[in-house]
Simulated assay, not measured.
Amino acid sequence: MEDTLRTCYEALGFTQAPFSITPDTGLFYPGSRHVAAYKQLYHACTTGVIAVLSGEIGLGKTLVVRCVLRSLPETVRVAYLINPLMDLPDLLRSIGRDFGGPALPNNAPLSVLHNHLVETVLEGARDGARFVVIVDEAHRLSGDSLEALRLLSNLETERSKLIGLVLVGQPELERTLALRAMRPLRERVGVWLKLGPLSRDECAAYVRHRIKRTHRDGGFEFTGMALWWLQWQTRGVPRRINLACERAVLLAFAMSTRRVTASMMRQACREFSEAWA
């Protein structure tokens, strides 16, 4: 299937897949909300501020985080957790390993894991390093894990915080942080961000941006009505936009054209109508 897609794209003039749903930082769309999220997360990662980024599935949260990771200076050591469904010892062990700490046995008690992690951070700070923990799918974290992360983020010198914390998740994360038990963490959050869907104009700009970045000569287009239908059917969710556009591009290949019309877009979106209902 992958080889077939590559053949189709090459025949239509694309140098790479224009609408892949994988978080390709090279195709980052510089829309106002995504750029603002990028800048504020970068600030949080380099200053020790606690930040929360929330949004529904498919809005581009992970892509924003990946862009931040690519641009951080070498002095920032990152523990990037993409699987928060781990128990507390494994969580601390994973963070310590990413921070460059020593490997510890699986049966090491929590106190030992925590102390070694603190020692790793203090030693790195003496050499000018900063640290940040970024948790994707953070709405899946347990209350104990969130509390442990809060305690870690308390580590500081007289001048600055030593460990930043970025929590990225679906709207359930906001509801979790609104609980009374989460008040100590919630009151320390310095950056609250929420991604939303793309407007009609943003959707059109998003599609054109991806074509511009991946097509040899820009000689591929979506008609105005195709873009209108696309935004209406996908509700402006980037992941849905990518899925629908990929199908539409394949239809264009089958019809030997470099132009996606409204009827082709309707057909492409029809495949996902039940999933998006």
Rank of each mutant, 00 (worst) to 15 (best):
S160G: 02
A226Y: 10
V76N: 12
W229F: 10
V76R: 15
G48I: 00
L162S: 04
E246R: 14
G224Y: 13
V166A: 13
A148H: 01
L146G: 02
Y42G: 01
S54E: 12
V249G: 06
Y206V: 00
A51S: 08
E274N: 08
A254R: 14
P184A: 08
L162F: 03
L59N: 07
P18T: 02
G48P: 00
S111H: 13
T46N: 06
H114A: 10
V68H: 08
S145G: 00
E156F: 01
V52K: 15
L193Q: 01
F19N: 09
E147F: 12
R140K: 07
T234Y: 03
S142Y: 12
G143P: 02
T75I: 05
F222K: 00
R175P: 08
E147W: 10
A51N: 03
R97M: 09
S153D: 06
W228R: 12
E119S: 09
I50C: 08
L149G: 10
S273G: 06
L146S: 03
R183P: 06
H43A: 14
L122E: 09
T75V: 05
R126C: 11
V191D: 04
A148V: 00
I163H: 00
S54G: 10
R159N: 00
G169D: 00
G128K: 02
K194S: 03
E202K: 07
L155S: 00
E10S: 03
R180Y: 01
Y29Q: 03
A17E: 14
L110Y: 02
E123M: 09
T75G: 01
L91H: 10
P109L: 14
P84V: 11
K212A: 04
